[in-house]
C-alpha cells in the first residue's frame, strides 16, 4: 500500500472534552497516518460527509458524555448511506463494559476506554485494515 492510511478523528454530539481526541490524533499522526481532526460538536451527518470528502480509511469517534449508544449507530448509518461500509470505525471514551458487545455487533472495530495505550489503537487499525505489523 503506497498511500498513507487516512484517519478521521471526530467528536460527535455536544461533548466538548477533547483531550483524548487530540492526543489520539497526534499519536496516530506520529504513527505515520494521515490524520484529520474535525473539532467538537459534529453531527453524524457532518462526520460521514467529512469521511467521504477526505476519503478516509478509518473513523475514530470520541464520546465521553454517555451518548454513545445513540450517536454511534447514527454515524454508522450515515456512513452506509454514503457507501462507506468498509471504513473502519473505532470508538473511544467513557464506555461501560456492558455496552461494548453491542457496539462491536453494530460493526465497530474497537472500543477504547481510559488507560488505553496508543499502541493498542494502532494495532487494532492495522489488523482491521488487514495489514501486517512491521
Amino acid at each position: 500500500m503506497d498511500r498513507k492510511v487516512r484517519v478521521l478523528v471526530a467528536k460527535p454530539g455536544l461533548d466538548g472534552h477533547d483531550r483524548g481526541a487530540k492526543v489520539i490524533a497526534r499519536a496516530l499522526r506520529d504513527a505515520g497516518y494521515e490524520v484529520i481532526y474535525t473539532g467538537i460538536r459534529q453531527t453524524p451527518e457532518m462526520i460521514a460527509e467529512a469521511a467521504l470528502q477526505e476519503d478516509v480509511d478509518v473513523v475514530g469517534l470520541s464520546i465521553l458524555s454517555g451518548a454513545h449508544m445513540a450517536l454511534v449507530p447514527r454515524v454508522l448509518d450515515e456512513l452506509k448511506k454514503r457507501g462507506l461500509d468498509d471504513v473502519v470505525v473505532l470508538v473511544g471514551g467513557i464506555i461501560p463494559d456492558e455496552d461494548v458487545p453491542a457496539l462491536l455487533d453494530m460493526g465497530v472495530a474497537g472500543v477504547f476506554g481510559p488507560g488505553t495505550l496508543t499502541s493498542e489503537i494502532v494495532e487494532t487499525i492495522e489488523k482491521a485494515l488487514g495489514r501486517e505489523l512491521a
Binding site: 461533548d15 458524555s65 451518548a67
Partner: peptide, 15 residues
C-alpha cells in the same frame, strides 16, 4: 438546549 431539541439527541440526563 431544552431536552427535546434536535441537537440534544442521546444526551438527556447522561452526565
Amino acid at each position: 438546549y431544552d431536552t427535546d431539541a434536535p441537537e440534544a439527541v442521546g444526551e438527556f440526563g447522561k452526565c
